[in-house]
Simulated assay, not measured.
Amino acid sequence: MIRMIGAGLAWIGRHGTAALVVSIFIGVALPALSAYLRPYLAVAVFSLLTLAFLRVDQDAIVRRLRRPALLIAALVWTMLGAPLLTWLAILAIGPDTLGPDIVLALYIATAAPPVMAAPAFIYLLGLDGTLSLALSVAALIVTPLTAPLVGELMLGAALPLSVGGLALQLSALLVGAFLLSFVFRRLAGRERLARSSHHISGLNVLLLLVFAIAAMDGVAASFAAKPGFTLGLTALTFALALVQMLLSLALFAPASREDAYAIAHTCGTRNMGLMVAALGGTLPELTWLWFAVGQFPIYMLPMMLKPFVRLYCGPNAGSVT
């Protein structure tokens, strides 16, 4: 039985990329399953963080740290520049015009660190994911410092938690996941972890399935009741992700095209689940709907952008399936 489970996890790890795209549609098609899994979203987020730390390629990060200027610039832009630019846009439009629920959604969608699956998406596109990996890990580390400060600017008293409370919640999630991964790493050893890479990938895919399905709670009802509004909100989440990517491409154009795209894609795919978990999993209905449909660009853009990546980075890019 154990061998069968291990073989199943390994198979999912090798072929699970398409399942991630399918999972968000499963969540929409099976609303009862989404509602059942929603209370476990925070557990899924914590487990995904633990696996992310467990899988971190320390040697790849060290190689990037030997030339830290680009990484530091990308980190400052991702965790401060992009959310502060969003704040200026909110001020220009008017917070009252947007409403507190949309402002909270914009905060979650821009102050969150990149998803830890971002390097995997970069590799999927046939590019080097080491810069994305280093940026994702660095962003996770600074999130308890940057996210509360940005939240105070964007939301002020409307921030669901105090600045200190949010910093504490984020720190607890990250430190807890890191310590648990450290224990697993010491117990298993590097060689066993290397041999089990496909099994870990399979478990990661299963957890992403749980997360994606849980995040879709309420989406089917919204599509049924307000299809035009829900489609429009979904389009806005795609637009926000693409704007962050385009601005990043323009800002880091002096770097190599491959590095510029790695930064852009990483910046445009945010770990909103971490912010939702830190906020206790309770959000206003409209903010939750933004968070839910905001998973579509995260899971779908790697596939949709393959032709652009091939054109922008060269014919060898985008060839990995």
Rank of each mutant, 00 (worst) to 15 (best):
184 F>D: 01
24 I>E: 08
275 M>I: 14
261 Y>S: 00
170 L>M: 04
229 F>Y: 13
281 G>E: 08
243 V>T: 13
247 L>K: 11
213 I>A: 09
253 A>K: 13
57 D>N: 13
48 L>V: 02
255 A>D: 05
186 R>C: 06
69 A>Q: 07
257 R>A: 05
280 G>E: 07
290 W>S: 10
265 H>T: 06
26 I>Q: 08
94 G>E: 06
91 L>E: 10
86 T>I: 11
54 L>Q: 07
131 L>T: 05
25 F>H: 04
262 A>R: 08
35 A>W: 11
111 A>R: 07
157 A>V: 15
239 A>Y: 15
293 V>T: 12
258 E>G: 06
223 F>I: 10
13 G>Y: 01
260 A>H: 00
232 G>V: 06
57 D>K: 08
175 V>C: 12
72 I>F: 09
294 G>L: 10
135 L>N: 01
115 V>L: 11
58 Q>S: 10
141 I>G: 15
147 A>W: 09
42 A>T: 03
81 G>N: 03
235 A>R: 14
152 E>P: 00
294 G>H: 12
156 G>T: 10
321 T>K: 14
4 M>L: 14
166 L>Q: 02
129 G>W: 05
100 P>N: 04
278 A>K: 03
7 A>N: 13
214 A>F: 15
127 L>P: 07
64 R>I: 14
27 G>N: 00
126 G>I: 06
297 P>D: 03
174 L>W: 08
66 R>K: 07
251 L>W: 09
135 L>C: 10
153 L>Q: 10
173 L>P: 05
11 W>N: 13
216 M>Y: 08
105 A>Q: 01
86 T>N: 03
38 R>N: 02
269 T>K: 02
60 A>Q: 05
45 V>W: 09
117 A>W: 05
144 P>M: 14
321 T>I: 14
14 R>S: 05
80 L>W: 14
133 L>M: 15
241 A>S: 15
122 I>N: 04
168 L>D: 12
94 G>C: 13
20 L>W: 06
96 D>P: 13
243 V>P: 05
241 A>K: 12
165 G>F: 03
94 G>V: 12
263 I>A: 03
212 A>E: 15
161 L>A: 09
23 S>A: 07
150 V>A: 10
283 L>K: 03
96 D>Y: 13
79 M>I: 09
277 A>P: 13
180 L>N: 07
110 T>N: 07
180 L>Y: 06
217 D>L: 03
315 P>R: 15
36 Y>G: 00
67 R>N: 12
98 L>R: 09
308 F>P: 01
25 F>E: 03
279 L>W: 01
83 P>R: 01
37 L>M: 14
312 Y>M: 07
212 A>N: 15
20 L>M: 09
55 R>W: 05
90 I>K: 10
63 R>I: 01
232 G>L: 00
160 P>N: 05
279 L>M: 07
90 I>D: 00
233 L>M: 08
224 A>D: 14
290 W>M: 11
116 M>S: 05
255 A>Q: 08
137 V>M: 11
139 A>K: 06
23 S>D: 06
74 A>Q: 10
163 V>Q: 05
146 T>V: 02
129 G>K: 06
147 A>T: 10
100 P>Q: 04
78 T>G: 01
175 V>L: 15
244 Q>V: 10
75 L>N: 04
69 A>L: 13
50 T>G: 15
183 V>A: 04
316 N>C: 04
171 S>C: 14
